[in-house]
Design a protein around this nucleic acid. Structure first.
Lengths: 142, 142, 142, 142
DNA sequence: TTTT
DNA sequence: TTTT
Protein backbone atom coordinates (compact mmCIF):
# COMPACT_ATOMS: atom_id res chain seq x y z
CA UNK A 1 0.00 0.00 0.00
CA UNK A 2 1.38 3.39 -0.89
CA UNK A 3 -0.06 6.75 -0.09
CA UNK A 4 -3.27 7.42 1.78
CA UNK A 5 -6.75 6.89 0.39
CA UNK A 6 -9.27 7.42 3.13
CA UNK A 7 -12.93 8.39 3.18
CA UNK A 8 -15.24 9.02 6.09
CA UNK A 9 -18.92 9.40 5.40
CA UNK A 10 -21.86 9.67 7.77
CA UNK A 11 -25.47 10.22 6.81
CA UNK A 12 -28.79 8.59 6.08
CA UNK A 13 -29.43 5.78 3.62
CA UNK A 14 -31.56 6.74 0.66
CA UNK A 15 -32.66 3.19 -0.01
CA UNK A 16 -32.72 -0.22 1.56
CA UNK A 17 -29.48 -2.17 1.50
CA UNK A 18 -28.87 -4.49 -1.44
CA UNK A 19 -27.02 -7.63 -0.44
CA UNK A 20 -25.77 -10.09 -3.01
CA UNK A 21 -23.42 -13.03 -2.75
CA UNK A 22 -20.44 -13.99 -4.87
CA UNK A 23 -20.34 -17.52 -6.28
CA UNK A 24 -17.96 -18.24 -3.43
CA UNK A 25 -20.63 -17.20 -0.97
CA UNK A 26 -19.14 -13.89 0.12
CA UNK A 27 -21.68 -11.18 0.91
CA UNK A 28 -21.49 -7.87 -0.96
CA UNK A 29 -23.70 -4.96 0.09
CA UNK A 30 -24.42 -1.73 -1.73
CA UNK A 31 -25.63 1.22 0.23
CA UNK A 32 -26.27 4.82 -0.70
CA UNK A 33 -25.67 7.55 1.87
CA UNK A 34 -26.61 11.20 1.59
CA UNK A 35 -24.69 14.12 2.99
CA UNK A 36 -25.58 17.71 2.41
CA UNK A 37 -23.91 21.06 2.59
CA UNK A 38 -25.12 24.58 2.49
CA UNK A 39 -23.65 27.09 0.07
CA UNK A 40 -24.47 30.51 -1.29
CA UNK A 41 -25.54 30.77 -4.91
CA UNK A 42 -24.72 33.68 -7.20
CA UNK A 43 -27.58 35.73 -5.79
CA UNK A 44 -26.28 35.16 -2.29
CA UNK A 45 -29.12 32.87 -1.33
CA UNK A 46 -28.37 29.89 0.85
CA UNK A 47 -28.86 26.67 -1.01
CA UNK A 48 -28.45 23.07 0.02
CA UNK A 49 -26.70 20.53 -2.11
CA UNK A 50 -27.11 16.84 -1.42
CA UNK A 51 -24.28 14.51 -2.22
CA UNK A 52 -24.98 10.82 -2.72
CA UNK A 53 -22.26 8.36 -1.78
CA UNK A 54 -22.22 4.94 -3.34
CA UNK A 55 -20.73 2.50 -0.84
CA UNK A 56 -19.75 -1.14 -1.24
CA UNK A 57 -19.24 -3.44 1.71
CA UNK A 58 -17.90 -6.98 1.76
CA UNK A 59 -18.08 -10.05 3.92
CA UNK A 60 -19.22 -9.75 7.50
CA UNK A 61 -19.52 -5.97 7.20
CA UNK A 62 -21.96 -6.44 4.31
CA UNK A 63 -24.00 -8.87 6.36
CA UNK A 64 -24.19 -6.46 9.29
CA UNK A 65 -25.40 -3.76 6.90
CA UNK A 66 -28.03 -6.06 5.46
CA UNK A 67 -29.25 -6.97 8.90
CA UNK A 68 -29.26 -3.62 10.67
CA UNK A 69 -29.58 -0.91 8.06
CA UNK A 70 -32.47 0.13 5.87
CA UNK A 71 -33.74 3.19 4.07
CA UNK A 72 -33.52 6.14 6.42
CA UNK A 73 -30.97 4.55 8.78
CA UNK A 74 -27.98 6.62 9.74
CA UNK A 75 -24.56 5.10 9.36
CA UNK A 76 -20.89 6.02 9.69
CA UNK A 77 -18.61 4.44 7.10
CA UNK A 78 -14.84 4.49 6.81
CA UNK A 79 -13.24 3.27 3.64
CA UNK A 80 -11.32 4.12 0.50
CA UNK A 81 -12.15 5.48 -2.93
CA UNK A 82 -12.20 3.22 -5.93
CA UNK A 83 -13.12 4.14 -9.47
CA UNK A 84 -14.46 1.28 -11.53
CA UNK A 85 -14.48 1.16 -15.30
CA UNK A 86 -17.41 -0.36 -17.14
CA UNK A 87 -18.86 -0.33 -20.61
CA UNK A 88 -22.26 1.08 -21.38
CA UNK A 89 -24.71 -0.26 -23.93
CA UNK A 90 -23.20 1.86 -26.65
CA UNK A 91 -19.86 0.26 -25.97
CA UNK A 92 -18.41 3.35 -24.41
CA UNK A 93 -16.11 3.43 -21.40
CA UNK A 94 -17.75 4.73 -18.28
CA UNK A 95 -16.40 5.27 -14.79
CA UNK A 96 -18.08 5.03 -11.42
CA UNK A 97 -16.44 6.08 -8.18
CA UNK A 98 -17.40 4.13 -5.09
CA UNK A 99 -16.37 3.97 -1.48
CA UNK A 100 -15.10 0.55 -0.51
CA UNK A 101 -16.09 0.52 3.13
CA UNK A 102 -14.00 -1.34 5.68
CA UNK A 103 -15.62 -0.02 8.82
CA UNK A 104 -19.32 0.41 9.45
CA UNK A 105 -20.78 1.98 12.53
CA UNK A 106 -24.49 2.28 13.06
CA UNK A 107 -25.61 5.49 14.66
CA UNK A 108 -28.94 5.37 16.39
CA UNK A 109 -31.05 7.38 13.99
CA UNK A 110 -34.77 7.17 14.44
CA UNK A 111 -35.47 5.44 11.18
CA UNK A 112 -33.37 2.41 11.80
CA UNK A 113 -35.62 0.88 14.39
CA UNK A 114 -36.36 -2.56 13.15
CA UNK A 115 -37.45 -4.95 15.82
CA UNK A 116 -34.07 -6.09 17.04
CA UNK A 117 -33.05 -2.51 17.48
CA UNK A 118 -29.60 -3.39 18.74
CA UNK A 119 -27.01 -1.08 17.22
CA UNK A 120 -24.09 -2.73 15.60
CA UNK A 121 -20.60 -2.04 14.46
CA UNK A 122 -18.26 -3.96 12.24
CA UNK A 123 -14.75 -3.61 10.99
CA UNK A 124 -13.45 -5.57 8.06
CA UNK A 125 -10.28 -7.58 8.59
CA UNK A 126 -7.28 -5.78 7.17
CA UNK A 127 -6.81 -8.38 4.46
CA UNK A 128 -10.31 -7.77 3.19
CA UNK A 129 -10.20 -7.26 -0.53
CA UNK A 130 -13.05 -6.76 -2.91
CA UNK A 131 -13.65 -9.68 -5.21
CA UNK A 132 -12.96 -9.00 -8.86
CA UNK A 133 -15.91 -7.50 -10.69
CA UNK A 134 -16.11 -10.60 -12.84
CA UNK A 135 -17.59 -12.45 -9.89
CA UNK A 136 -20.86 -10.79 -10.81
CA UNK A 137 -22.95 -11.39 -13.86
CA UNK A 138 -24.55 -8.00 -13.85
CA UNK A 139 -24.92 -6.14 -17.04
CA UNK A 140 -25.89 -3.11 -15.11
CA UNK A 141 -22.95 -1.55 -13.36
CA UNK A 142 -24.99 0.15 -10.63
CA UNK B 1 -24.06 21.10 6.74
CA UNK B 2 -25.48 17.72 7.60
CA UNK B 3 -23.65 14.48 7.90
CA UNK B 4 -19.96 13.94 7.31
CA UNK B 5 -18.27 13.91 3.91
CA UNK B 6 -14.53 13.74 4.38
CA UNK B 7 -11.67 12.55 2.23
CA UNK B 8 -7.98 12.33 2.97
CA UNK B 9 -5.63 11.56 0.15
CA UNK B 10 -1.85 11.55 0.03
CA UNK B 11 0.29 10.56 -2.90
CA UNK B 12 2.22 11.77 -5.92
CA UNK B 13 0.87 13.96 -8.70
CA UNK B 14 0.57 12.27 -12.06
CA UNK B 15 0.72 15.53 -13.97
CA UNK B 16 1.57 19.15 -13.56
CA UNK B 17 -1.06 21.30 -11.87
CA UNK B 18 -3.60 23.02 -14.10
CA UNK B 19 -4.57 26.42 -12.78
CA UNK B 20 -7.40 28.41 -14.33
CA UNK B 21 -9.21 31.51 -13.21
CA UNK B 22 -12.90 32.24 -13.02
CA UNK B 23 -14.19 35.42 -14.67
CA UNK B 24 -14.17 36.86 -11.16
CA UNK B 25 -10.48 36.13 -10.89
CA UNK B 26 -10.63 33.23 -8.49
CA UNK B 27 -8.02 30.55 -9.03
CA UNK B 28 -9.12 26.96 -9.60
CA UNK B 29 -6.55 24.17 -9.72
CA UNK B 30 -6.95 20.59 -10.85
CA UNK B 31 -4.54 18.01 -9.62
CA UNK B 32 -4.40 14.28 -10.00
CA UNK B 33 -2.96 12.17 -7.20
CA UNK B 34 -2.18 8.47 -7.29
CA UNK B 35 -2.48 6.02 -4.45
CA UNK B 36 -1.94 2.33 -4.75
CA UNK B 37 -2.83 -0.77 -2.87
CA UNK B 38 -1.75 -4.35 -3.05
CA UNK B 39 -4.25 -7.15 -3.33
CA UNK B 40 -4.28 -10.84 -4.18
CA UNK B 41 -5.83 -11.89 -7.45
CA UNK B 42 -7.71 -15.12 -8.03
CA UNK B 43 -4.52 -17.08 -8.41
CA UNK B 44 -3.24 -15.72 -5.13
CA UNK B 45 -0.65 -13.52 -6.75
CA UNK B 46 -0.01 -10.11 -5.27
CA UNK B 47 -1.10 -7.37 -7.60
CA UNK B 48 -0.97 -3.63 -7.29
CA UNK B 49 -3.84 -1.41 -8.22
CA UNK B 50 -3.34 2.31 -8.70
CA UNK B 51 -6.16 4.65 -7.90
CA UNK B 52 -6.21 8.11 -9.44
CA UNK B 53 -7.86 10.89 -7.48
CA UNK B 54 -9.16 13.93 -9.28
CA UNK B 55 -8.84 16.93 -6.96
CA UNK B 56 -10.13 20.47 -7.34
CA UNK B 57 -8.76 23.35 -5.31
CA UNK B 58 -10.01 26.91 -5.08
CA UNK B 59 -8.69 30.33 -4.22
CA UNK B 60 -5.46 30.66 -2.32
CA UNK B 61 -5.15 26.88 -1.97
CA UNK B 62 -5.24 26.58 -5.77
CA UNK B 63 -2.54 29.21 -6.08
CA UNK B 64 -0.32 27.43 -3.59
CA UNK B 65 -0.75 24.22 -5.58
CA UNK B 66 0.13 25.99 -8.80
CA UNK B 67 3.21 27.48 -7.26
CA UNK B 68 4.63 24.57 -5.30
CA UNK B 69 3.38 21.37 -6.88
CA UNK B 70 4.22 19.70 -10.17
CA UNK B 71 4.24 16.25 -11.68
CA UNK B 72 5.86 13.88 -9.22
CA UNK B 73 5.32 16.10 -6.17
CA UNK B 74 3.84 14.49 -3.10
CA UNK B 75 0.88 16.15 -1.46
CA UNK B 76 -1.60 15.56 1.34
CA UNK B 77 -5.13 16.76 0.63
CA UNK B 78 -8.17 16.93 2.86
CA UNK B 79 -11.54 17.61 1.35
CA UNK B 80 -14.95 16.29 0.47
CA UNK B 81 -16.45 14.22 -2.32
CA UNK B 82 -18.54 15.83 -4.98
CA UNK B 83 -20.08 14.16 -8.01
CA UNK B 84 -20.60 16.45 -10.95
CA UNK B 85 -23.05 15.80 -13.77
CA UNK B 86 -22.15 16.71 -17.34
CA UNK B 87 -23.31 15.88 -20.81
CA UNK B 88 -21.12 14.09 -23.31
CA UNK B 89 -21.00 14.69 -27.04
CA UNK B 90 -23.77 12.18 -27.61
CA UNK B 91 -25.96 14.17 -25.27
CA UNK B 92 -25.82 11.57 -22.56
CA UNK B 93 -25.62 12.27 -18.84
CA UNK B 94 -22.26 11.50 -17.36
CA UNK B 95 -20.98 11.78 -13.81
CA UNK B 96 -17.54 12.54 -12.48
CA UNK B 97 -16.59 12.27 -8.84
CA UNK B 98 -14.01 14.71 -7.58
CA UNK B 99 -12.44 15.68 -4.30
CA UNK B 100 -13.03 19.31 -3.44
CA UNK B 101 -9.91 19.99 -1.42
CA UNK B 102 -9.97 22.46 1.43
CA UNK B 103 -6.60 21.67 2.93
CA UNK B 104 -3.38 21.11 1.07
CA UNK B 105 -0.14 20.09 2.66
CA UNK B 106 3.03 19.63 0.71
CA UNK B 107 5.18 16.75 1.81
CA UNK B 108 8.81 17.00 0.96
CA UNK B 109 9.09 14.44 -1.79
CA UNK B 110 12.15 14.61 -3.99
CA UNK B 111 10.27 15.50 -7.14
CA UNK B 112 8.89 18.77 -5.93
CA UNK B 113 12.19 20.58 -5.77
CA UNK B 114 11.71 23.70 -7.73
CA UNK B 115 14.09 26.45 -6.80
CA UNK B 116 12.18 28.00 -3.95
CA UNK B 117 12.00 24.65 -2.26
CA UNK B 118 10.10 26.04 0.69
CA UNK B 119 7.45 23.63 1.83
CA UNK B 120 3.98 25.01 2.01
CA UNK B 121 0.62 24.36 3.50
CA UNK B 122 -2.71 25.95 3.01
CA UNK B 123 -6.17 25.65 4.44
CA UNK B 124 -9.19 27.09 2.75
CA UNK B 125 -11.35 29.42 4.79
CA UNK B 126 -14.42 27.63 6.08
CA UNK B 127 -16.69 29.69 3.90
CA UNK B 128 -14.86 28.60 0.79
CA UNK B 129 -17.34 27.38 -1.75
CA UNK B 130 -16.68 26.23 -5.24
CA UNK B 131 -17.98 28.57 -7.90
CA UNK B 132 -20.92 27.30 -9.93
CA UNK B 133 -19.88 25.19 -12.90
CA UNK B 134 -21.23 27.82 -15.22
CA UNK B 135 -18.26 29.99 -14.41
CA UNK B 136 -16.35 27.88 -16.86
CA UNK B 137 -16.77 27.69 -20.59
CA UNK B 138 -15.26 24.28 -20.94
CA UNK B 139 -16.86 21.80 -23.18
CA UNK B 140 -14.56 19.21 -21.85
CA UNK B 141 -15.53 18.10 -18.36
CA UNK B 142 -12.08 16.77 -17.43
CA UNK C 1 0.15 25.32 10.05
CA UNK C 2 2.59 22.53 9.45
CA UNK C 3 1.90 18.85 9.46
CA UNK C 4 -1.41 17.22 10.19
CA UNK C 5 -3.04 16.98 13.61
CA UNK C 6 -6.51 15.56 13.23
CA UNK C 7 -8.86 13.71 15.54
CA UNK C 8 -12.25 12.21 14.89
CA UNK C 9 -14.27 10.99 17.83
CA UNK C 10 -17.83 9.75 18.02
CA UNK C 11 -19.57 8.40 21.10
CA UNK C 12 -21.81 9.19 24.04
CA UNK C 13 -21.32 11.98 26.54
CA UNK C 14 -20.56 10.82 30.03
CA UNK C 15 -21.79 14.03 31.63
CA UNK C 16 -23.75 17.13 30.85
CA UNK C 17 -21.94 19.83 28.93
CA UNK C 18 -20.14 22.50 30.92
CA UNK C 19 -20.31 25.89 29.27
CA UNK C 20 -18.33 28.84 30.55
CA UNK C 21 -17.59 32.24 29.12
CA UNK C 22 -14.34 34.11 28.76
CA UNK C 23 -14.20 37.67 30.08
CA UNK C 24 -14.65 38.69 26.45
CA UNK C 25 -17.90 36.76 26.33
CA UNK C 26 -16.77 33.86 24.21
CA UNK C 27 -18.38 30.53 25.06
CA UNK C 28 -16.16 27.58 25.96
CA UNK C 29 -17.67 24.14 26.40
CA UNK C 30 -16.13 21.01 27.87
CA UNK C 31 -17.54 17.67 26.95
CA UNK C 32 -16.46 14.15 27.69
CA UNK C 33 -17.07 11.43 25.15
CA UNK C 34 -16.62 7.70 25.60
CA UNK C 35 -15.47 5.24 23.00
CA UNK C 36 -14.78 1.61 23.67
CA UNK C 37 -12.91 -1.22 22.07
CA UNK C 38 -12.80 -4.91 22.61
CA UNK C 39 -9.53 -6.71 23.13
CA UNK C 40 -8.33 -10.09 24.33
CA UNK C 41 -6.58 -10.27 27.66
CA UNK C 42 -3.72 -12.64 28.49
CA UNK C 43 -6.13 -15.47 29.16
CA UNK C 44 -7.74 -14.94 25.79
CA UNK C 45 -10.94 -13.55 27.24
CA UNK C 46 -12.63 -10.69 25.45
CA UNK C 47 -12.52 -7.52 27.47
CA UNK C 48 -13.83 -4.07 26.81
CA UNK C 49 -11.82 -0.95 27.45
CA UNK C 50 -13.51 2.44 27.59
CA UNK C 51 -11.61 5.49 26.50
CA UNK C 52 -12.69 8.91 27.71
CA UNK C 53 -12.03 11.85 25.44
CA UNK C 54 -11.82 15.32 26.90
CA UNK C 55 -13.08 17.80 24.33
CA UNK C 56 -13.04 21.59 24.32
CA UNK C 57 -15.26 23.64 22.05
CA UNK C 58 -15.26 27.39 21.44
CA UNK C 59 -17.61 30.07 20.29
CA UNK C 60 -20.73 29.11 18.42
CA UNK C 61 -19.80 25.44 18.45
CA UNK C 62 -19.66 25.57 22.23
CA UNK C 63 -23.07 27.19 22.36
CA UNK C 64 -24.57 24.52 20.11
CA UNK C 65 -23.12 21.85 22.38
CA UNK C 66 -24.59 23.55 25.44
CA UNK C 67 -27.97 23.76 23.82
CA UNK C 68 -28.32 20.37 22.18
CA UNK C 69 -26.10 17.93 24.05
CA UNK C 70 -26.38 16.42 27.48
CA UNK C 71 -25.28 13.33 29.37
CA UNK C 72 -25.96 10.32 27.18
CA UNK C 73 -26.16 12.26 23.91
CA UNK C 74 -24.21 10.93 20.98
CA UNK C 75 -21.94 13.30 19.11
CA UNK C 76 -19.36 13.31 16.33
CA UNK C 77 -16.43 15.66 16.85
CA UNK C 78 -13.60 16.59 14.55
CA UNK C 79 -10.66 18.49 15.93
CA UNK C 80 -7.01 18.46 16.87
CA UNK C 81 -4.95 17.30 19.80
CA UNK C 82 -3.53 19.76 22.25
CA UNK C 83 -1.57 19.01 25.38
CA UNK C 84 -1.85 21.62 28.08
CA UNK C 85 0.65 22.09 30.88
CA UNK C 86 -0.56 23.00 34.35
CA UNK C 87 0.77 22.96 37.86
CA UNK C 88 -0.73 20.82 40.59
CA UNK C 89 -1.06 21.76 44.23
CA UNK C 90 2.36 20.34 45.00
CA UNK C 91 3.80 22.68 42.40
CA UNK C 92 4.56 19.89 39.98
CA UNK C 93 4.16 20.11 36.23
CA UNK C 94 1.24 18.14 34.91
CA UNK C 95 -0.02 17.63 31.39
CA UNK C 96 -3.50 17.08 30.06
CA UNK C 97 -4.26 16.15 26.48
CA UNK C 98 -7.49 17.49 25.04
CA UNK C 99 -9.23 17.55 21.71
CA UNK C 100 -9.87 21.06 20.50
CA UNK C 101 -13.02 20.48 18.48
CA UNK C 102 -13.73 22.56 15.40
CA UNK C 103 -16.64 20.53 14.05
CA UNK C 104 -19.53 19.13 16.00
CA UNK C 105 -22.22 16.94 14.58
CA UNK C 106 -25.08 15.66 16.64
CA UNK C 107 -26.12 12.13 15.92
CA UNK C 108 -29.62 11.19 16.89
CA UNK C 109 -28.95 8.99 19.90
CA UNK C 110 -31.88 8.13 22.10
CA UNK C 111 -30.65 9.93 25.15
CA UNK C 112 -30.42 13.33 23.59
CA UNK C 113 -34.14 13.87 23.31
CA UNK C 114 -34.78 17.11 25.02
CA UNK C 115 -37.96 18.78 23.96
CA UNK C 116 -36.60 20.69 21.01
CA UNK C 117 -35.24 17.52 19.59
CA UNK C 118 -33.88 19.18 16.50
CA UNK C 119 -30.48 17.81 15.64
CA UNK C 120 -27.77 20.30 15.00
CA UNK C 121 -24.41 20.64 13.43
CA UNK C 122 -21.78 23.29 13.69
CA UNK C 123 -18.40 23.97 12.23
CA UNK C 124 -16.04 26.49 13.72
CA UNK C 125 -14.67 29.16 11.41
CA UNK C 126 -11.19 28.31 10.25
CA UNK C 127 -9.69 31.19 12.16
CA UNK C 128 -11.10 29.89 15.41
CA UNK C 129 -8.40 29.82 18.02
CA UNK C 130 -8.70 28.87 21.62
CA UNK C 131 -8.27 31.74 24.02
CA UNK C 132 -5.18 31.58 26.18
CA UNK C 133 -5.67 29.56 29.32
CA UNK C 134 -5.17 32.68 31.41
CA UNK C 135 -8.61 33.81 30.39
CA UNK C 136 -9.91 31.51 33.05
CA UNK C 137 -9.51 31.87 36.78
CA UNK C 138 -9.76 28.19 37.51
CA UNK C 139 -7.41 26.63 39.93
CA UNK C 140 -8.61 23.28 38.82
CA UNK C 141 -7.33 22.35 35.41
CA UNK C 142 -10.12 19.89 34.61
CA UNK D 1 -15.75 -1.67 19.14
CA UNK D 2 -18.20 1.11 19.78
CA UNK D 3 -17.96 4.66 18.62
CA UNK D 4 -15.12 6.17 16.65
CA UNK D 5 -11.68 6.96 18.02
CA UNK D 6 -9.43 8.01 15.20
CA UNK D 7 -6.29 10.11 14.97
CA UNK D 8 -4.27 11.17 11.99
CA UNK D 9 -0.93 12.80 12.55
CA UNK D 10 1.78 13.77 10.11
CA UNK D 11 4.99 15.55 10.93
CA UNK D 12 8.66 15.17 11.73
CA UNK D 13 10.14 13.00 14.45
CA UNK D 14 11.76 14.89 17.29
CA UNK D 15 13.99 11.98 18.26
CA UNK D 16 15.20 8.67 17.02
CA UNK D 17 12.79 5.78 17.35
CA UNK D 18 12.94 3.69 20.51
CA UNK D 19 12.25 0.05 19.87
CA UNK D 20 11.81 -2.43 22.69
CA UNK D 21 10.59 -5.99 22.80
CA UNK D 22 8.07 -7.66 25.04
CA UNK D 23 9.10 -10.85 26.81
CA UNK D 24 7.12 -12.62 24.08
CA UNK D 25 9.34 -10.98 21.47
CA UNK D 26 6.87 -8.48 20.10
CA UNK D 27 8.35 -5.17 19.00
CA UNK D 28 7.08 -1.95 20.52
CA UNK D 29 8.23 1.39 19.17
CA UNK D 30 7.82 4.86 20.63
CA UNK D 31 8.03 7.84 18.36
CA UNK D 32 7.43 11.49 18.91
CA UNK D 33 6.02 13.62 16.11
CA UNK D 34 5.68 17.38 16.01
CA UNK D 35 2.96 19.38 14.37
CA UNK D 36 2.60 23.11 14.59
CA UNK D 37 -0.06 25.67 14.11
CA UNK D 38 -0.09 29.40 13.87
CA UNK D 39 -2.36 31.48 16.06
CA UNK D 40 -2.75 35.09 17.07
CA UNK D 41 -1.88 36.01 20.62
CA UNK D 42 -3.66 38.69 22.65
CA UNK D 43 -1.66 41.43 21.00
CA UNK D 44 -2.63 40.14 17.59
CA UNK D 45 0.84 38.86 16.81
CA UNK D 46 1.16 35.61 14.94
CA UNK D 47 2.65 32.92 17.10
CA UNK D 48 3.48 29.33 16.41
CA UNK D 49 2.66 26.55 18.80
CA UNK D 50 4.28 23.16 18.46
CA UNK D 51 2.36 20.11 19.52
CA UNK D 52 4.23 16.92 20.34
CA UNK D 53 2.46 13.64 19.72
CA UNK D 54 3.54 10.55 21.62
CA UNK D 55 2.96 7.52 19.40
CA UNK D 56 3.22 3.82 20.19
CA UNK D 57 3.53 1.19 17.48
CA UNK D 58 3.42 -2.57 17.80
CA UNK D 59 4.63 -5.62 15.95
CA UNK D 60 5.66 -5.31 12.35
CA UNK D 61 4.71 -1.63 12.25
CA UNK D 62 7.11 -0.98 15.13
CA UNK D 63 9.87 -2.81 13.30
CA UNK D 64 9.30 -0.77 10.15
CA UNK D 65 9.50 2.40 12.22
CA UNK D 66 12.73 1.25 13.82
CA UNK D 67 14.24 0.44 10.47
CA UNK D 68 13.18 3.41 8.38
CA UNK D 69 12.56 6.33 10.69
CA UNK D 70 14.91 8.46 12.69
CA UNK D 71 15.08 11.95 14.16
CA UNK D 72 13.94 14.39 11.50
CA UNK D 73 12.08 11.81 9.39
CA UNK D 74 8.59 12.68 8.31
CA UNK D 75 5.83 10.18 8.91
CA UNK D 76 2.09 9.84 8.59
CA UNK D 77 0.40 7.87 11.36
CA UNK D 78 -3.16 6.72 11.73
CA UNK D 79 -4.33 5.36 15.02
CA UNK D 80 -6.44 5.85 18.11
CA UNK D 81 -6.14 7.73 21.36
CA UNK D 82 -5.40 5.93 24.56
CA UNK D 83 -4.87 7.44 27.98
CA UNK D 84 -2.68 5.41 30.27
CA UNK D 85 -2.68 5.68 34.04
CA UNK D 86 0.55 5.40 35.96
CA UNK D 87 1.89 6.26 39.38
CA UNK D 88 4.62 8.78 39.92
CA UNK D 89 7.39 8.58 42.54
CA UNK D 90 5.22 10.37 45.06
CA UNK D 91 2.60 7.68 44.62
CA UNK D 92 0.22 9.95 42.80
CA UNK D 93 -1.96 8.96 39.85
CA UNK D 94 -0.79 10.40 36.57
CA UNK D 95 -2.21 10.09 33.09
CA UNK D 96 -0.51 10.10 29.73
CA UNK D 97 -2.37 10.23 26.44
CA UNK D 98 -0.78 8.41 23.53
CA UNK D 99 -1.65 7.55 19.98
CA UNK D 100 -1.72 3.82 19.39
CA UNK D 101 -0.72 3.75 15.74
CA UNK D 102 -2.06 1.06 13.44
CA UNK D 103 -0.92 2.53 10.15
CA UNK D 104 2.44 4.07 9.41
CA UNK D 105 3.36 5.71 6.16
CA UNK D 106 6.76 7.15 5.52
CA UNK D 107 6.80 10.36 3.59
CA UNK D 108 9.95 11.07 1.71
CA UNK D 109 11.44 13.78 3.85
CA UNK D 110 15.10 14.49 3.38
CA UNK D 111 16.09 13.44 6.85
CA UNK D 112 15.04 9.86 6.56
CA UNK D 113 17.66 8.82 4.10
CA UNK D 114 19.45 5.95 5.67
CA UNK D 115 21.26 3.75 3.21
CA UNK D 116 18.40 1.62 2.01
CA UNK D 117 16.37 4.69 1.26
CA UNK D 118 13.38 2.66 0.18
CA UNK D 119 10.17 4.24 1.37
CA UNK D 120 7.93 2.04 3.40
CA UNK D 121 4.44 1.69 4.62
CA UNK D 122 2.85 -0.64 7.07
CA UNK D 123 -0.62 -1.34 8.35
CA UNK D 124 -1.19 -3.35 11.47
CA UNK D 125 -3.49 -6.33 11.15
CA UNK D 126 -6.93 -5.49 12.44
CA UNK D 127 -6.56 -7.84 15.36
CA UNK D 128 -3.47 -6.01 16.54
CA UNK D 129 -3.81 -5.21 20.20
CA UNK D 130 -1.29 -3.60 22.44
CA UNK D 131 0.18 -5.92 25.00
CA UNK D 132 -0.84 -5.23 28.59
CA UNK D 133 1.30 -2.65 30.31
CA UNK D 134 2.59 -5.32 32.66
CA UNK D 135 4.67 -6.71 29.86
CA UNK D 136 7.10 -3.93 30.57
CA UNK D 137 9.25 -3.52 33.61
CA UNK D 138 9.68 0.18 33.23
CA UNK D 139 9.45 2.40 36.20
CA UNK D 140 9.46 5.33 33.87
CA UNK D 141 6.14 5.83 32.14
CA UNK D 142 7.55 7.73 29.16
C1' DT E 1 -18.84 9.54 33.56
C1' DT E 2 -21.57 7.18 28.34
C1' DT E 3 -23.55 3.46 25.48
C1' DT E 4 -24.73 -1.64 23.86
C1' DT F 1 -33.03 8.07 -2.96
C1' DT F 2 -32.05 10.16 2.93
C1' DT F 3 -32.44 13.53 6.76
C1' DT F 4 -33.41 18.29 9.22
Amino acid sequence: MSGVNKVIVMGHLGQDVEVRFTPAGKAVANISIATSEKFKDKEGNTQERTEWHRIVLFGRTAEVAGEFLRKGSMAYVEGRLQTRKWTDKEGQDRYTTEIIGDRLQLVGGKSDSQGSGAPASHKAPAENTPPPAEDFDDDIPF
